[in-house]
Design a protein around this nucleic acid. Structure first.
Lengths: 215, 215
DNA sequence: CTACGAAACCGCAATCACTACAGTTTTGGA
DNA sequence: TCCAAAACTGTAGTGATTGCGGTTTCGTAG
């Protein structure tokens, strides 16, 4: 996939946004709006085609065509390739993960917080519109996508380990925390093919709590 | 990589071997010998080129050329592609893993057996000729290869879970055992970038033993 | 309002992994 | 000696991904 990744791509401009008087929450210029539209057109087209014919049966050329853009534009928006079209690059994950831990309730352990966090997310969530659920199941049943999704989670390993270290007052390079981070982030993939993902989630955390007391 | 995998490839013949009287350990016919030679020529050429120029800088065409075979022959032997040239398809892993657990000493727990097993292997082993060590380090420092190596281990998940179930007298589809299997098989990858892999190994098992008492 | 620089697009050509196919050579027996 | 299977070969795709040079569209400083 994207190995070298160092090409012309739509990223954050020099100093865009924030200029129309005080406080501008969603004040996007036409340019930004169009960029977002293109991006959405691409991922929408991709998802539709994927669900219709299956991930492997759709080519990037077809997706670009359906979104009425050039193939190069597709890659400019999603350097991660086909799989990124469905799963995004998700910088959001890392942030929400950290937020869940830092903003945990009084007397709630770090692991409890993570447990709750996952319980309301993706395969583990219960209240999801069919649209989203369909997507989640599609990802879980497509090897390449599943692997990519896992990667996205595991990519948060360092970050999560660091947050856990801070929140438990330990050194940020303590090995056990790194290991724990990996094990926690492995859960979504691990529980993907469990008959009852929810129960699987609870079971795993039960064991992790026993193995890493005080976290 | 190999997605469809259903092509002409050198595999086990109809009923080859075992015909020259009783017991024929290494009695390979000329054909088998040549096949093995081709295979070796390929992986040898690959490893040499990889170490010399780096994994990404070598093309399969160059490897085939260096081994004096056709590219199609390369893929016939290694459907797994470039990464398989270094790491093999390793059906061996699964077997040795099971053997380590089943053949563990009296009073030795399953986790102890696995701990010992890994301790003498790859990054964790201490007595290794430079050749092998160089290879191990090369794999660990090449993302694609590392990922592939991990896959090979994780592919043993079902199998290991089953063996552990048998050996501890539990149902083979008990979730905790599947999780534990995954966590154990994740170790080689996990410990790859630890400053002291050996210590990392010990640390991880310490926690796993606590989390999965009685295994 | 206008010109200018950057950002977002575009299309084309090229590389590279991987596969399908069809034809050859080699080998192990019947 | 002869045949079928196995192993190998070259050619010709398909498809993802990237490099490049050129075009259009914005945003904004003047």
């Amino acid at each position: 996939m994207a190995e070298t990744a160092a090409r012309k791509q739509p990223g954050a401009p020099k100093e865009a946004a924030a200029r129309k008087g005080p406080a501008a929450p969603k004040e996007l210029g036409r340019r930004e709006r169009k960029k977002a539209a293109t991006r959405k057109a691409l991922s929408d087209a991709a998802l539709e085609l994927f669900l219709e014919r299956g991930f492997e049966k759709v080519t990037v050329a077809q997706i670009a065509e359906a979104a009425d853009t050039a193939v190069t534009t597709l890659f400019a928006h999603f350097p991660g390739g086909k799989e990124a079209l469905v799963l995004g690059d998700d910088i959001e994950r890392e942030a929400s993960l950290a937020a869940a831990v830092r903003g945990r309730g009084e007397g709630e352990s770090v692991l409890d917080a993570l447990h709750r966090f996952f319980a309301g997310r993706g395969i583990f969530a219960e209240d999801l519109d069919n649209e989203f659920r369909k997507r989640v199941e599609f990802v879980a049943s497509t090897p390449k996508l599943r692997a990519y999704a896992r990667q996205l989670w595991v990519a948060c390993e360092e970050s999560l380990a660091k947050v856990m270290a801070e929140e438990t007052g330990r050194s940020e390079d303590e090995l056990p925390l790194k290991v724990l981070a990996r094990y926690v982030l492995e859960i979504p993939d691990l529980a993907s093919d469990a008959p009852d993902p929810r129960r699987a989630l609870d079971t795993v955390f039960e064991h992790l709590r026993r193995g890493w007391p005080g976290v």
